[in-house]
Nucleic acid binder design. Structure first.
Lengths: 163, 163
DNA sequence: CTATAAAGGTCAAGGAAAGACAAAGATAGA
DNA sequence: TCTATCTTTGTCTTTCCTTGACCTTTATAG
């Protein structure tokens, strides 16, 4: 025994949509009812997956149209250097762990922070590390996140390690 | 404990998880309820084993997700340098800003952390960021420092690892 | 122009799984 | 013994997933 990985339906739908986006080089267009039929689930399940995994915070633009011939279009948006400042400005005064991780995921995916730093920041923002009651915890987390990103983007990578 | 006695349930679960980690070459993913069922114990027993034997201090990173399809992922950290492990063990439960900066200075001087990460960590540990009263602040700072160092030394530079 | 059908949107309820924590039981040491 | 620490369980909380009922928008047939 040893492999009993039982991915949730939402995970499978996420993978499917990701493959569509990859195939379409950043753009995918789906029909909610059709995909729901594919996975034999409620149509709103598709809405849930999109809301929880392809949100604007995660770097996607969602367009849709109802009625006959309706669709949902997902567009993966790339961060430009300029936008990093905007993203940082957009970080509120209180940040949940999930929100913080979303920011970091995105920055890593877009190649703005390296893997190692990604894990370092993630560690510092964990609720298991910031051991205190809400809402102070979310406030401190926001501070730490901003301070770390600020420090990161105001220091060039050192080429000491010879890469 | 003498060897004529039965190992405790916690010990058996520990062995089982260790075998999974060995099998997965450093990574294991379990479902708490499932393992609890295997050993016929309360699910929280699994949490106890993880907390007491696979803690970050012992060199593991724990990730988890609740809800349907939930899981607990254990990642064994390979701290190559014995010195670093000793240094990290030496970090107490409360760490002042000066102490934290001293640790970081030393790690940077010895070439264990790169400049950029040095500044990122320093930012996260500043008393201007950890806005709270003593002694909680020094406690949180200790947590953050340990977590960041742990994450840093468990990920190779410029290397894809992790989910 | 209107009625109808064909989409997607919203939301709340219920279920599933891990987390937190306290209390009780077991064990080892002084 | 007595006490501190480690184990084990049980209960309640939080987070995430899934569905279903109802609503709004859009296309199109008549």
């Amino acid at each position: 025994m040893g492999r009993w990985e039982l991915p949730s339906l939402a995970d499978m739908i996420e993978d499917y949509i990701n493959s569509l986006i990859a195939e379409g080089e950043g753009v995918a267009e789906i029909q909610r009812a059709f995909v729901a039929e594919m996975f034999r689930c409620a149509p709103s399940q598709i809405s849930y997956v999109i809301a929880s995994r392809f949100s604007p915070e995660k770097g996607f633009i969602i367009e849709s149209r109802r009625g006959g011939g309706g669709y949902i279009r997902l567009i993966r948006v790339n961060l430009e250097e300029e936008d990093i400042r905007k993203l940082m400005k957009g970080i509120g005064e209180y940040v949940s762990q999930q929100e913080a991780y979303d920011y970091l995921d995105r920055l890593r995916d877009e190649g703005y922070v390296d893997d190692r730093t990604f894990f370092v920041m993630k560690a510092a923002l964990s609720r298991n590390v910031l051991l205190m009651a809400l809402p102070s915890r979310d406030m401190i987390r926001a501070n730490v996140l901003k301070a770390m990103l600020n420090a990161y983007f105001s220091h060039e990578p050192d080429d000491e390690q010879g890469e």
